[in-house]
Design a binder for these strands. Sequence first.
DNA 1: CGTCACGTTGACTAATTTCAATAACGGTGG
DNA 2: CCACCGTTATTGAAATTAGTCAACGTGACG
Lengths: 239, 239
Amino acid sequence: MPPHALQIACSHCNLRELCMPVDVTAQDMERLDTLVTTRRRVRRGAPLYSRGDRFTGLYAIRSGFFKTRVTTEDGREQVTGFQMAGEIMGLDGIVADEHTCDALALEDAEVCEMPYQRIESLSHEVPALQTHVHKIMSREIVREHGVMLLLGSMRAEERLASFLLNLLQRLHARGFSEAELVLRMTREEIGSYLGLTLETVSRTFSRFADEGLIEVKHRQVRIVNGAGLRAIVNTTVGR
Amino acid sequence: MPPHALQIACSHCNLRELCMPVDVTAQDMERLDTLVTTRRRVRRGAPLYSRGDRFTGLYAIRSGFFKTRVTTEDGREQVTGFQMAGEIMGLDGIVADEHTCDALALEDAEVCEMPYQRIESLSHEVPALQTHVHKIMSREIVREHGVMLLLGSMRAEERLASFLLNLLQRLHARGFSEAELVLRMTREEIGSYLGLTLETVSRTFSRFADEGLIEVKHRQVRIVNGAGLRAIVNTTVGR
DNA sequence: CGTCACGTTGACTAATTTCAATAACGGTGG
DNA sequence: CCACCGTTATTGAAATTAGTCAACGTGACG
């Protein structure tokens, strides 16, 4: 019944250092291998979970790319983040045993499911796991502070530059180029995340290109002048 | 040496149900009483902690009112939240053993300090505490999603109305009036939190007053038409 | 090869910021 | 107790940013 149970051992996963605590004994690692019970494939456009779904556990992204969004009754929507391999999703569900946002795959993806009960019980046996879970949640809180800073006090150019630099840095940590990336989301999704309209995102991309900072061809972006991008984030006067 | 050790028992604290897990046995409650080691007074304007401070533990607000803010190298600042009695502060420090934001008292305050080591070790003995800590962090993540929605997709009137309603609801849960409040922060601090200038905040207050929704006299706010305020949040077209 | 979703660009509009002047309060010290 | 000062708040007018509406390209995919 447990599908390819041997394949999904975290101890042999090349993303381990992104998802898992680093300093664990061989014995603890063996226990941590029981954390992930199943892998789940999510097709592009499909939800990993939706608002109102019962919370069952957390997900570690094995491959693929997601967005999370919150929505209001009157249909407004705000993208709250984009997630890539090695990142943990589902933290919003813990507080009320129910998810409060939607997680949607922007490309075909695979996730490792970690039942919450198991996380809790394993945390007792493996203190490093408990600390790790706290750190993951704390990191998410700090990340969101950064988004609040972006949304609350930056102008369009700074927001987009920050966004690009952030994506690049995370991709770089995963072995990708520091100077090139393929956007997995539409201009509208970028705009929602950054609190801008899709037109403003498009125009700002064009302006960056005109200024020789980047080259944009649809979703293919090449960084020509990284220092220039960084300068936009740091030196613009803002509001 | 432990200062007034008997006074600071959570089991006898009237804020218990705000800070602490509810379903615990008498025996567990006794253990939880060892969580808070010290009380600390913070004078108005003084920091509870600052960016770069070593992370030592979490704080439960016993009385008083705080703001948290993140700042950039170039001096920009974003208020990330306002905290009142019963709420937990310091979660940002867990991930890197160092605080990433400033917490400042907006009025004389008193907090209960819970050393992080003790939280971790007690979580092993008392599973309800572990769950509770997770829920507190998850709640903070969900709260921040709400702020992102506000900053990313609401216009000035909606932001301010949401802000007022949120404050009122939290104050009401603490036994205060649902229709009246005293703001503990300046227009500038409200503006920073809401991603607006202090002038826009002031003007929007005035507009609400003109429309008969509220009465404002400096920091004293009386809600005249709560339904009207709620309507602004729900029905405005937004962006 | 046509259709549809996505992206770009332009012209105009609206919301919010900026700059500036004035007013009101609250704490401090005479 | 009152006057004064600095801080906080209000309001107006001008400037600016980003949004809205609209038209047109372009690519991907069946």
